[in-house]
Design a protein around this nucleic acid. Structure first.
Lengths: 195, 195
DNA sequence: TGGTGTAAATTCACTACAGAGTATACATCC
DNA sequence: GGATGTATACTCTGTAGTGAATTTACACCA
């Protein structure tokens, strides 16, 4: 059986690289199979279709990312402000990588904007929500008031920073987002409320 | 000569609809030509390639959007907080439309994330920058301190809200972004600054 | 005013190719 | 020997882009 798990993993690895590089539509199964060192027919043995493949890939990535965040989040100590700083430092670093192309989940969701029912869309949505919940827990443990609302605001700034960094290739947006997030968690939430 | 301008406009109109609906890769020139009531060969008479077509389309849309914003911005009066409120009310309304799929510029930039040199990318980048500048002017005239920095933060929240609204199909993100933006423009900018 | 040459505009019919997906046969392990 | 896995070699459809003929608009001239 020539280790089926290994083959499946190789296909997912190749799919990850190619979907990440070229997006969904422009990544071809021929190329993925080639990169995985396998025939296209084998890909279809393990995955029913291109849609199923991308679904499986995203599900796997979501689990992986969540696990990574869990350990990363546990290491995040200090005041809410410090955590926010650390978060955005990480973002700046990540988004400065050579061929960085934003969050794969966001990217897929945007590319498939006209297909709300696509499995990849559902996974992306659930994943983003799970991440936000986890971060909110971390922030709450760090003593932040109204952690859910504040974390959502941080999340909005992170997503905005990713998109604008991708568009402009300029780390200034992440820096601006960091400063804004810091003020949002530091300021008493009441100030500026609508009259 | 069978009104060339009219034909060109019809092609751009069809291209707008289809690129918007399906994104760049999945919108075909055959379909665009069909929608425009024209042969594909005619499309190629007016536009050198698919890339040139999308470039011309984005350039036209950018000009159109800028003009629309100019008049819209002139009508925006009141305090910075009120302007922010109005802005996000508009966003909520826009993003609630049936098949809303976010900003076309953002969408193209994300889909072409691996092609930093693509003409559409450059236009998207310049357009977003121009919009931010215009909004900053409006905010400055409304009496906002440090309008450029505050406007960038608003911009980050708007982009974040668009992405997360697209991902989750939930207007709560735009509402959260609105509240955050309001606090950011209302609070004295010094508070929360890094020690 | 009406014909006519000419360049712009458009169509028809095509190429070439890539990509998703499959029928079928071959190998490998229990 | 049967189930699992992989490869060869296809089909079929859609798509970007093109060659060459054809029509339309209009300037110019008798």
């Amino acid at each position: 059986m020539a280790d089926s798990n290994h083959t499946r993993a190789a296909i997912l690895d190749a799919a990850y690289v190619l979907f990440r590089r070229s997006g969904y539509a422009r990544a071809s199964l021929d190329e993925i199979a080639r990169q995985a060192g396998v025939t296209k027919r084998t890909v279809y043995y393990h995955f029913e279709s291109k849609d199923h493949l991308v679904g499986a890939l995203l599900a796997e990535q979501a689990a992986r990312a969540l696990a990574a965040w869990r350990t990363y989040g546990d290491g995040l100590a200090g005041s809410p402000e410090e955590i926010v700083d650390r978060l955005f430092e990480g973002l700046v670093e990540w988004s400065s990588r050579p061929h960085w192309s934003g969050s794969g989940f966001t990217r897929l969701a945007v590319e498939l904007a006209d297909m709300p029912g696509h499995p990849a869309r559902r996974i992306a949505s659930e994943h983003k929500a799970a991440l936000e919940t986890m971060l909110a827990d971390t922030m709450r443990r760090a003593g932040l008031d109204d952690a859910a609302a504040r974390t959502r605001e941080i999340h909005l700034l992170v997503e905005g920073a990713m998109v604008l960094t991708l568009i402009h290739a300029d780390p200034a947006y992440a820096a601006a987002a960091a400063a804004a997030a810091r003020r949002l968690v530091a300021a008493p939430a009441g100030s500026g409320a609508k009259a």
